[in-house]
């Protein structure tokens, strides 16, 4: 029987793969979205900033920021889950970034006002075929039970020969 990998080796490999993914996208860096990882489960975090406001009177987070946050969470989750097996087998090619899925459509429901504080989101891949994927994502702030926005998106999966 093979000896299990030391836990630190596993953590370093997974964290490096996730960091590579998130840090490669300028817009994710611009919005300041971060990802918490527990095993394969990701939670996106959007730290509050004044320039994310869309309605200064309420004040409320911009609907476009919410949409962008949900779309980023969906794309990262989709890329992360589809490369998981390769990553675990050490098949990810060094610094080369995995090709990203392309958004076909994205529908956002705004359920409550986005308050001027941090937001969190988790995405679930409901179907991931060879070519198409369907993802659902939910975002909350103080209470996980009080979802403030949700979205469903369809994505075109990259083929091996896509750049």
């Amino acid at each position: 029987m093979r000896k299990p990998e030391p836990v630190q080796v596993i953590k370093t490999r997974r964290d490096a793969a996730l960091r590579g993914l998130v840090e490669s996208v300028p817009y994710i860096q611009y919005l300041g979205v971060q990802f918490d990882r527990r095993g394969d489960e990701l939670t996106a975090v959007l730290p509050y900033r004044e320039d994310l406001i869309g309605n200064p009177l309420l004040p409320a987070i911009h609907g476009g920021v919410t949409a962008a946050f949900l779309e980023i969470t969906s794309i990262i989750e989709l890329t992360w889950s589809s490369q998981w097996a390769d990553m675990e087998e050490g098949k990810l090619a060094g610094d080369a970034l995995p090709p990203m899925p392309k958004t076909i459509d994205f529908t956002v429901d705004y359920l409550r006002t986005g308050l001027p504080r941090d937001a969190y989101a988790r995405a679930r891949v409901n179907r991931s075929g060879r070519r198409y994927a369907s993802v659902h994502v939910e975002a909350w702030q103080d209470n996980h039970d009080r979802i403030f926005a949700q979205a469903t998106g369809h994505f075109l999966m990259p083929t091996r020969d896509d750049g």
Binding site: V25, P26, Y27, Y30, A67, A68, E71, M100
Partner: peptide, 27 residues
């Protein structure tokens, strides 16, 4: 704006930024 790029390989703007534009314009 290069800060809003979603795909570093192609330099294409992220869908999220397009959403923000569409949402503002709709409002």
């Amino acid at each position: 704006d290069t800060r809003f790029v979603g795909n570093p390989a192609t330099g294409v703007i992220h869908g999220g930024a397009v959403s923000a534009l569409m949402d503002t314009c709709g409002g």
